[in-house]
Deep mutational scan, measured.
Amino acid sequence: NQASVVANQLIPIQTALTLVMMRSEVVTPVGIPAEDIPRLVSMQVNRAVPLGTTLMPDMVKGYA
Rank of each mutant, 00 (worst) to 15 (best):
N1F: 13
N1H: 12
N1T: 15
N1Y: 15
N1C: 07
N1W: 10
N1L: 15
N1K: 07
Q2D: 14
Q2P: 15
Q2L: 15
Q2Y: 12
A3M: 11
A3K: 09
A3W: 08
A3Y: 11
A3C: 12
A3I: 06
A3Q: 08
A3V: 07
A3F: 07
A3P: 10
A3R: 06
S4E: 01
S4R: 02
S4K: 02
S4H: 02
S4W: 03
S4Y: 03
S4D: 00
V5P: 00
V5D: 01
V5I: 13
V6A: 03
V6E: 00
V6T: 05
V6K: 03
A7G: 01
A7V: 06
A7Q: 03
A7C: 04
A7I: 04
N8C: 07
N8P: 01
N8T: 13
N8V: 08
Q9V: 10
Q9I: 11
Q9S: 10
Q9P: 01
Q9A: 08
Q9W: 07
Q9T: 13
Q9E: 11
Q9M: 14
L10D: 13
L10G: 11
L10V: 13
L10M: 15
L10C: 14
L10P: 11
L10I: 10
I11E: 00
I11K: 01
I11N: 01
I11C: 03
I11G: 01
I11A: 00
I11F: 02
I11D: 02
I11V: 06
I11R: 01
P12V: 05
P12Q: 12
P12F: 04
P12S: 07
P12K: 08
P12T: 07
P12M: 07
I13E: 14
I13K: 11
I13A: 15
I13M: 15
I13V: 13
Q14G: 12
Q14S: 14
Q14T: 13
T15D: 04
T15Y: 06
T15Q: 08
T15W: 04
T15A: 10
T15N: 04
A16C: 15
A16N: 09
A16F: 14
A16M: 12
A16V: 12
A16P: 13
A16S: 14
A16I: 11
A16Y: 12
L17G: 04
L17Y: 00
L17D: 04
L17V: 03
L17E: 04
L17T: 01
L17R: 00
L17W: 03
T18C: 05
T18A: 09
T18H: 05
T18Q: 10
T18W: 04
T18F: 04
T18M: 06
T18E: 10
T18L: 08
T18K: 08
L19G: 06
L19A: 12
L19I: 11
V20H: 13
V20M: 15
V20P: 15
V20Y: 15
V20D: 14
V20W: 12
V20C: 10
V20K: 11
V20N: 15
M21C: 04
M21K: 00
M21H: 09
M21Y: 05
M22F: 07
M22W: 03
M22D: 03
M22A: 00
M22E: 03
M22L: 13
R23K: 12
R23F: 04
R23V: 08
R23N: 05
R23Y: 05
R23S: 07
R23H: 05
S24M: 07
S24K: 13
S24L: 05
S24E: 13
S24T: 15
S24D: 06
E25S: 10
E25Y: 06
E25Q: 07
E25C: 07
E25G: 10
E25M: 09
E25T: 06
V26H: 11
V26C: 08
V26E: 15
V26I: 14
V27A: 06
V27M: 05
V27D: 02
V27G: 01
V27R: 09
V27Y: 01
V27P: 01
V27K: 06
V27N: 02
V27E: 02
T28M: 09
T28R: 04
T28N: 12
T28P: 02
T28Q: 11
T28Y: 11
T28S: 15
T28K: 06
P29A: 03
P29Q: 05
P29H: 05
P29N: 05
V30N: 11
V30F: 13
V30L: 12
V30Y: 12
V30C: 11
V30T: 10
V30R: 06
V30A: 09
V30S: 13
G31W: 04
G31H: 01
G31V: 01
G31E: 01
G31C: 04
G31T: 02
G31A: 03
G31R: 01
I32M: 01
I32F: 02
I32H: 02
I32K: 01
P33K: 09
P33Q: 07
P33D: 07
P33C: 10
P33V: 10
P33W: 10
P33A: 08
A34F: 06
A34C: 10
A34Q: 06
A34K: 05
E35N: 14
E35R: 06
E35V: 12
E35F: 08
E35S: 12
E35Q: 11
E35K: 07
D36R: 09
D36K: 09
D36W: 08
D36H: 14
D36G: 05
D36S: 10
D36F: 13
D36A: 11
I37T: 06
I37C: 05
I37S: 02
I37H: 01
P38T: 13
P38I: 08
P38Q: 14
R39L: 13
R39I: 12
R39E: 07
R39V: 08
R39C: 15
R39G: 07
L40M: 05
L40I: 12
L40K: 00
L40C: 03
L40E: 00
L40W: 03
L40S: 00
V41D: 02
V41W: 00
V41E: 06
V41A: 05
V41C: 10
V41Y: 01
V41S: 02
V41R: 05
S42R: 09
S42V: 04
S42Q: 13
S42M: 15
S42I: 04
S42D: 12
M43W: 07
M43P: 00
M43H: 11
Q44N: 08
Q44Y: 13
Q44C: 15
Q44G: 03
Q44S: 14
Q44K: 13
Q44P: 09
Q44R: 12
V45F: 00
V45A: 04
V45C: 10
V45L: 09
V45D: 02
V45T: 14
V45M: 07
N46G: 08
N46E: 13
N46M: 13
N46D: 10
N46H: 12
N46A: 12
N46I: 09
R47T: 14
R47D: 08
R47A: 10
R47C: 11
R47P: 02
R47S: 15
A48C: 11
A48S: 13
A48H: 14
A48M: 14
A48D: 15
A48R: 11
V49T: 05
V49S: 02
V49N: 02
V49L: 09
V49G: 01
V49C: 07
V49P: 03
P50S: 14
P50C: 08
P50T: 10
P50K: 08
P50F: 07
P50Y: 13
L51E: 14
L51A: 13
L51H: 10
L51V: 10
L51C: 12
G52M: 04
G52F: 04
G52K: 01
G52A: 06
G52N: 12
G52Y: 04
T53Q: 12
T53M: 11
T53A: 12
T53D: 13
T54V: 10
T54A: 06
T54P: 06
T54W: 03
T54C: 05
T54F: 03
L55K: 00
L55R: 00
L55S: 01
L55M: 15
L55H: 01
L55Q: 01
M56H: 07
M56I: 07
M56K: 07
M56N: 05
M56S: 06
P57K: 12
P57T: 05
P57F: 06
P57Q: 08
P57A: 11
P57M: 06
P57I: 05
P57R: 06
D58P: 05
D58K: 07
D58G: 09
D58E: 14
D58A: 11
M59C: 06
M59A: 07
M59R: 01
M59H: 08
M59I: 06
M59S: 05
V60R: 00
V60W: 02
V60K: 03
V60Y: 01
V60Q: 01
K61M: 12
K61P: 13
K61E: 11
K61V: 14
K61S: 14
K61R: 13
K61A: 14
G62H: 11
G62V: 04
G62N: 14
G62Q: 09
G62F: 07
G62T: 05
G62M: 12
Y63H: 04
Y63P: 03
Y63F: 12
Y63I: 06
Y63C: 05
A64T: 13
A64N: 11
A64P: 15
A64L: 13
A64V: 10
A64I: 13
A64D: 09
A64G: 14
